[in-house]
């Protein structure tokens, strides 16, 4: 039996918005520590790993581990019906074949309830291996989102070059090329506006902007984003 209440639905709305274009059908793996999602995108090029800790819900109750197979397009449509400030309760019974969602407006004058059918999703256990990355860049997530959007006008690929005191995003295509250099800015007042480049060795790697733009949709969830790069292993964002 799972019953979890989120004080404001906006958090789950943002999460589903960020992953719905990457993940078709996947399991919410629920246990007493929270709700986890690990799924590759449909073209098996990217992995989404998400953990919503039990502490973020109040109350949170999960009697035994259950995997809720969800179609994310459906969940995204249902989440559109929730107001940002509504509190949201998700429930699944023992041998559940539906996930129940309830949205309650702040002054409880409107209560919406939806059931979405659950499906069997084959669960292969995936995760991101612990890696000692050559370069780790911390920067404002809105800035990263903007860089990915701006450079998409020039090319479908962006080369990220991390050197000692700067990180450069370069895009070159048939019509021309563009580059954006971001420099570290220690000692800023707002933590989220900080830019740091931690380098074991310089790296220069190319990535698909299609995926980076999808990942950047999660920017509204956190003010700061960390990019971790090494040769021959996937970029971690």
């Amino acid at each position: 039996m799972l019953e979890a209440r989120l004080p404001s639905a906006v958090t789950l709305k943002k999460i589903i918005d960020a992953v719905k274009e990457l993940v078709q059908d996947a399991n919410f793996d629920c246990n007493d520590s929270g709700i986890a999602l690990q799924a590759m995108d449909s073209s098996h090029v990217a992995l989404v790993a998400l953990l919503m800790r039990a502490e973020g819900f109040d109350p949170y109750r999960c009697d035994r581990n259950i995997a809720l197979g969800i179609n994310f397009a459906t969940l995204a449509k249902v989440m559109k019906c929730a107001g940002n400030d509504d509190n949201l309760t998700i429930k699944a019974g023992e041998d559940a074949d539906v996930l129940s969602l309830m949205f309650e407006s702040t002054n409880s004058d409107r209560i919406s309830e939806f059931d979405i059918k659950l499906m069997d999703v084959d669960a292969d256990h995936l995760g991101i291996p612990e890696t000692d990355y050559s370069a780790t860049i911390k920067m404002p997530s809105a800035e990263f989102q903007r860089i990915c959007r701006d450079l998409s006008v020039m090319s479908e690929t962006v080369t990220i070059e991390a050197v000692k005191d700067a990180v450069k995003f370069i895009a070159s295509g048939d019509t021309g090329s563009g580059s954006i250099t971001v420099k570290p800015n220690q000692a800023v007042d707002k933590k989220d506006m900080e830019v740091t480049v931690t380098l074991q060795e310089p790296v220069k790697l190319a990535f698909s902007l299609k995926y980076l733009n999808h990942f950047a949709k999660a920017s509204t969830l956190a003010g700061s984003v960390t990019l971790s790069l090494s040769d021959d292993v996937p970029l971690m964002i």
Partner: peptide
């Protein structure tokens, strides 16, 4: 195809 099976291996090596 090679990339995809590399990635599946990489992510399931956890």
């Amino acid at each position: 195809q090679l990339l995809q099976c590399f990635l599946r291996g990489y992510f399931s090596s956890v």
